[in-house]
Protein backbone atom coordinates (compact mmCIF):
# COMPACT_ATOMS: atom_id res chain seq x y z
CA UNK A 1 0.00 0.00 0.00
CA UNK A 2 1.28 3.40 -0.98
CA UNK A 3 1.92 6.03 1.66
CA UNK A 4 1.14 9.37 0.04
CA UNK A 5 2.82 12.54 1.21
CA UNK A 6 2.91 16.01 -0.27
CA UNK A 7 6.12 18.00 0.10
CA UNK A 8 6.24 21.72 -0.66
CA UNK A 9 9.26 23.83 -1.49
CA UNK A 10 7.61 27.10 -0.54
CA UNK A 11 10.66 29.18 -1.53
CA UNK A 12 9.80 28.40 -5.16
CA UNK A 13 6.20 29.64 -4.90
CA UNK A 14 5.51 32.88 -6.79
CA UNK A 15 1.85 33.14 -5.73
CA UNK A 16 0.43 32.61 -9.21
CA UNK A 17 -2.51 30.69 -7.66
CA UNK A 18 -2.64 28.22 -10.55
CA UNK A 19 -2.82 25.42 -7.95
CA UNK A 20 -5.96 26.90 -6.41
CA UNK A 21 -7.73 27.34 -9.73
CA UNK A 22 -6.71 23.89 -11.04
CA UNK A 23 -8.05 22.29 -7.85
CA UNK A 24 -11.32 24.20 -8.06
CA UNK A 25 -11.82 23.13 -11.66
CA UNK A 26 -10.89 19.47 -11.25
CA UNK A 27 -12.92 18.98 -8.09
CA UNK A 28 -15.85 21.25 -9.00
CA UNK A 29 -15.33 23.36 -5.89
CA UNK A 30 -18.10 25.97 -5.71
CA UNK A 31 -17.16 29.54 -6.61
CA UNK A 32 -15.60 31.48 -3.75
CA UNK A 33 -14.34 28.36 -1.94
CA UNK A 34 -11.04 26.48 -2.24
CA UNK A 35 -9.43 23.29 -1.02
CA UNK A 36 -5.95 24.80 -0.98
CA UNK A 37 -4.43 28.21 -0.38
CA UNK A 38 -1.30 30.35 -0.50
CA UNK A 39 -0.52 32.20 2.72
CA UNK A 40 1.24 35.53 2.27
CA UNK A 41 3.57 36.88 4.98
CA UNK A 42 5.11 40.35 4.64
CA UNK A 43 8.91 40.13 4.56
CA UNK A 44 11.22 43.02 3.65
CA UNK A 45 14.07 40.72 2.65
CA UNK A 46 11.99 38.72 0.18
CA UNK A 47 12.25 39.75 -3.48
CA UNK A 48 8.51 40.42 -3.78
CA UNK A 49 8.18 41.85 -0.27
CA UNK A 50 6.28 38.70 0.78
CA UNK A 51 6.99 35.08 1.61
CA UNK A 52 4.47 32.64 0.14
CA UNK A 53 3.41 29.40 1.73
CA UNK A 54 1.20 27.11 -0.34
CA UNK A 55 -0.96 24.85 1.78
CA UNK A 56 -3.82 22.39 1.81
CA UNK A 57 -5.16 19.66 4.12
CA UNK A 58 -2.15 18.43 6.10
CA UNK A 59 -3.46 14.83 6.11
CA UNK A 60 -2.41 14.63 9.77
CA UNK A 61 -1.65 11.51 11.70
CA UNK A 62 -4.28 11.13 14.50
CA UNK A 63 -6.31 13.98 12.96
CA UNK A 64 -8.51 16.13 15.19
CA UNK A 65 -11.15 16.25 12.42
CA UNK A 66 -11.47 12.46 12.52
CA UNK A 67 -11.83 12.52 16.31
CA UNK A 68 -14.51 15.22 16.05
CA UNK A 69 -16.67 13.41 13.51
CA UNK A 70 -19.59 11.74 15.30
CA UNK A 71 -20.56 9.50 12.39
CA UNK A 72 -17.14 8.25 11.26
CA UNK A 73 -17.71 9.93 7.90
CA UNK A 74 -14.07 10.97 7.86
CA UNK A 75 -11.09 8.77 8.56
CA UNK A 76 -7.35 8.40 8.16
CA UNK A 77 -6.88 5.96 5.31
CA UNK A 78 -4.09 3.41 5.16
CA UNK A 79 -2.64 5.28 2.16
CA UNK A 80 -1.91 8.25 4.45
CA UNK A 81 -4.72 10.50 3.24
CA UNK A 82 -7.61 11.77 5.35
CA UNK A 83 -10.82 10.95 3.51
CA UNK A 84 -14.49 11.92 3.70
CA UNK A 85 -17.40 9.64 2.83
CA UNK A 86 -19.95 12.27 1.84
CA UNK A 87 -22.76 9.73 2.00
CA UNK A 88 -22.22 9.41 5.77
CA UNK A 89 -21.56 13.10 6.44
CA UNK A 90 -24.54 14.93 7.91
CA UNK A 91 -22.87 18.32 7.54
CA UNK A 92 -22.79 19.06 11.27
CA UNK A 93 -19.53 20.96 10.83
CA UNK A 94 -17.74 19.44 13.83
CA UNK A 95 -14.72 18.47 11.73
CA UNK A 96 -14.64 21.91 10.11
CA UNK A 97 -14.33 23.49 13.54
CA UNK A 98 -11.87 20.87 14.74
CA UNK A 99 -9.29 21.43 11.99
CA UNK A 100 -6.59 23.79 13.30
CA UNK A 101 -5.56 24.60 9.70
CA UNK A 102 -9.11 25.52 8.61
CA UNK A 103 -8.56 23.16 5.69
CA UNK A 104 -12.20 22.08 5.64
CA UNK A 105 -15.34 23.90 4.58
CA UNK A 106 -19.01 23.12 4.10
CA UNK A 107 -19.71 22.53 0.43
CA UNK A 108 -23.01 24.33 -0.17
CA UNK A 109 -23.83 22.08 -3.14
CA UNK A 110 -23.49 18.77 -1.29
CA UNK A 111 -24.17 20.12 2.21
CA UNK A 112 -21.25 18.08 3.47
CA UNK A 113 -17.69 18.75 4.62
CA UNK A 114 -15.18 19.18 1.83
CA UNK A 115 -11.39 19.25 1.65
CA UNK A 116 -8.33 18.08 -0.28
CA UNK A 117 -8.33 14.35 -1.02
CA UNK A 118 -5.26 14.42 -3.29
CA UNK A 119 -7.81 14.46 -6.17
CA UNK A 120 -8.55 10.78 -5.53
CA UNK A 121 -12.28 11.43 -5.66
CA UNK A 122 -12.24 13.23 -9.02
CA UNK A 123 -9.29 11.61 -10.81
CA UNK A 124 -8.18 8.50 -8.93
CA UNK A 125 -4.64 7.32 -9.69
CA UNK A 126 -3.57 10.65 -11.15
CA UNK A 127 -1.26 13.31 -9.72
CA UNK A 128 -3.26 15.98 -7.85
CA UNK A 129 -4.20 18.97 -10.02
CA UNK A 130 -2.26 21.44 -7.87
CA UNK A 131 0.92 19.41 -8.32
CA UNK A 132 0.44 18.89 -12.04
CA UNK A 133 -0.21 22.55 -12.81
CA UNK A 134 2.43 24.27 -10.64
CA UNK A 135 4.81 26.11 -13.06
CA UNK A 136 7.66 26.24 -10.51
CA UNK A 137 7.22 22.64 -9.37
CA UNK A 138 7.08 23.68 -5.75
CA UNK A 139 4.57 20.92 -4.86
CA UNK A 140 5.95 17.36 -4.95
CA UNK A 141 3.61 14.43 -4.41
CA UNK A 142 4.01 10.67 -4.34
CA UNK A 143 4.49 7.45 -2.44
CA UNK A 144 6.96 8.12 0.35
CA UNK A 145 7.49 4.37 0.82
CA UNK A 146 8.73 4.01 -2.76
CA UNK A 147 12.48 4.75 -2.64
CA UNK A 148 12.47 5.60 -6.32
CA UNK A 149 9.81 8.33 -6.01
CA UNK A 150 10.71 12.01 -6.12
CA UNK A 151 8.95 12.72 -2.84
CA UNK A 152 10.96 10.00 -1.07
CA UNK A 153 14.13 11.56 -2.51
CA UNK A 154 13.43 15.10 -1.29
CA UNK A 155 12.26 13.86 2.12
CA UNK A 156 15.54 11.95 2.47
CA UNK A 157 17.85 14.74 1.34
CA UNK A 158 16.23 17.97 2.55
CA UNK A 159 15.28 19.34 5.94
CA UNK A 160 11.60 18.60 6.70
CA UNK A 161 9.54 21.31 8.39
CA UNK A 162 6.04 20.77 9.73
CA UNK A 163 3.94 23.86 10.29
CA UNK A 164 1.90 23.46 13.45
CA UNK A 165 -0.68 25.87 14.91
CA UNK A 166 0.10 26.80 18.53
CA UNK A 167 -1.16 24.34 21.16
CA UNK A 168 -3.00 22.31 18.54
CA UNK A 169 -1.08 19.08 19.01
CA UNK A 170 -1.45 18.48 15.27
CA UNK A 171 0.81 15.97 13.56
CA UNK A 172 0.76 17.05 9.92
CA UNK A 173 2.23 14.88 7.19
CA UNK A 174 2.40 17.70 4.63
CA UNK A 175 6.08 18.62 4.74
CA UNK A 176 7.76 21.89 3.84
CA UNK A 177 11.32 21.63 2.58
CA UNK A 178 14.32 23.44 4.15
CA UNK A 179 12.50 26.63 5.18
CA UNK A 180 9.04 28.18 5.16
CA UNK A 181 7.36 31.25 6.62
CA UNK A 182 5.60 31.13 9.00
CA UNK A 183 6.72 27.99 10.83
CA UNK A 184 4.13 28.35 13.59
CA UNK A 185 0.54 29.35 12.92
CA UNK A 186 -1.60 31.30 15.41
CA UNK A 187 -3.85 29.37 17.75
CA UNK A 188 -7.51 29.29 16.86
CA UNK A 189 -10.70 27.82 18.35
CA UNK A 190 -11.01 24.24 17.20
CA UNK A 191 -13.68 22.78 19.43
CA UNK A 192 -17.37 22.39 18.84
CA UNK A 193 -18.87 22.76 22.30
CA UNK A 194 -22.00 20.68 21.63
CA UNK A 195 -20.12 17.80 20.05
CA UNK A 196 -17.39 17.93 22.71
CA UNK A 197 -20.16 17.42 25.27
CA UNK A 198 -20.92 14.08 23.67
CA UNK A 199 -17.63 12.57 24.83
CA UNK A 200 -18.39 12.68 28.59
CA UNK A 201 -22.01 11.74 27.82
CA UNK A 202 -20.86 8.63 25.97
CA UNK A 203 -18.65 7.75 28.94
CA UNK A 204 -21.59 8.25 31.30
CA UNK A 205 -23.77 5.96 29.16
CA UNK A 206 -21.06 3.32 29.19
CA UNK A 207 -20.72 3.37 32.98
CA UNK A 208 -24.32 3.97 34.05
CA UNK A 209 -25.65 1.57 31.43
CA UNK A 210 -23.11 -1.04 32.49
CA UNK A 211 -23.99 -0.64 36.15
CA UNK A 212 -27.72 -0.86 35.41
CA UNK A 213 -27.23 -4.05 33.40
CA UNK A 214 -25.02 -5.53 36.12
CA UNK A 215 -27.57 -4.61 38.82
CA UNK A 216 -30.43 -6.09 36.78
CA UNK A 217 -28.41 -9.25 36.13
CA UNK A 218 -27.66 -9.56 39.84
CA UNK A 219 -31.29 -8.95 40.78
CA UNK A 220 -32.43 -11.53 38.23
CA UNK A 221 -30.11 -14.16 39.68
CA UNK A 222 -31.11 -13.24 43.23
CA UNK A 223 -34.80 -13.58 42.47
CA UNK A 224 -34.14 -16.87 40.71
CA UNK A 225 -32.27 -18.37 43.67
CA UNK A 226 -33.80 -16.57 46.66
CA UNK A 227 -37.18 -15.13 45.60
CA UNK A 228 -38.32 -12.20 47.74
CA UNK A 229 -41.85 -13.58 47.69
CA UNK A 230 -40.68 -16.68 49.58
CA UNK A 231 -39.21 -14.48 52.32
CA UNK A 232 -42.64 -12.96 52.78
CA UNK A 233 -44.35 -16.34 52.67
CA UNK A 234 -42.29 -17.65 55.59
CA UNK A 235 -43.32 -15.02 58.17
CA UNK A 236 -46.88 -15.25 56.83
CA UNK A 237 -46.82 -19.04 57.25
CA UNK A 238 -45.28 -18.70 60.70
CA UNK A 239 -47.91 -16.15 61.67
CA UNK A 240 -50.64 -18.47 60.36
CA UNK A 241 -49.06 -21.34 62.31
CA UNK A 242 -48.99 -19.26 65.48
CA UNK A 243 -52.58 -18.23 65.02
CA UNK A 244 -53.62 -21.89 64.51
CA UNK A 245 -51.73 -23.10 67.58
CA UNK A 246 -53.11 -20.22 69.67
CA UNK A 247 -56.59 -21.05 68.51
CA UNK A 248 -56.05 -24.75 69.37
CA UNK A 249 -54.65 -23.77 72.74
CA UNK A 250 -57.60 -21.47 73.41
CA UNK A 251 -60.05 -24.16 72.34
CA UNK A 252 -58.24 -26.68 74.55
CA UNK A 253 -58.40 -24.31 77.50
CA UNK A 254 -62.09 -23.72 76.92
CA UNK A 255 -62.79 -27.44 76.82
CA UNK A 256 -60.82 -27.88 80.02
CA UNK A 257 -62.94 -25.19 81.59
CA UNK A 258 -66.10 -26.87 80.32
CA UNK A 259 -64.86 -30.21 81.66
CA UNK A 260 -64.04 -28.67 85.02
CA UNK A 261 -67.40 -26.97 85.18
Amino acid sequence: MAHYIMAIDSERCMNCKACIIACQQRNHVPYGLARNWIRETACSTAPAGFRFQPGTCMHCDDPSCVRACPTAATWKDSDGSVKIDVSRCIGCGSCIKACPYHARFLNPQSGTADKCDYCQGSTPGEVPACVAVCPTHCRIFGDADDPGSEVAGVLATRKPIHVIPKNSGARPTLTYLDATTPEILPEGPTESRPVEAMRPMAKAVTWIGGLVLAALGGTFVRQLLWPSAREEEEPAANAAGHRASNRAREEGTAEDHRGQS
Partner: peptide, 18 residues
Protein backbone atom coordinates in the same frame (compact mmCIF):
# COMPACT_ATOMS: atom_id res chain seq x y z
CA UNK B 1 -29.29 19.08 6.55
CA UNK B 2 -26.90 18.39 3.70
CA UNK B 3 -27.81 19.87 0.33
CA UNK B 4 -31.42 20.62 1.27
CA UNK B 5 -32.47 24.15 0.34
CA UNK B 6 -33.94 24.54 3.83
CA UNK B 7 -30.88 23.12 5.63
CA UNK B 8 -30.37 24.48 9.15
CA UNK B 9 -27.06 25.88 10.35
CA UNK B 10 -24.12 23.76 11.48
CA UNK B 11 -24.55 24.97 15.08
CA UNK B 12 -28.19 23.84 15.12
CA UNK B 13 -27.16 20.47 13.68
CA UNK B 14 -24.46 20.06 16.31
CA UNK B 15 -26.93 20.77 19.13
CA UNK B 16 -29.44 18.41 17.50
CA UNK B 17 -26.80 15.70 17.56
CA UNK B 18 -26.16 16.19 21.28
Amino acid sequence: SGDAAWAVSQTVLQWCLV
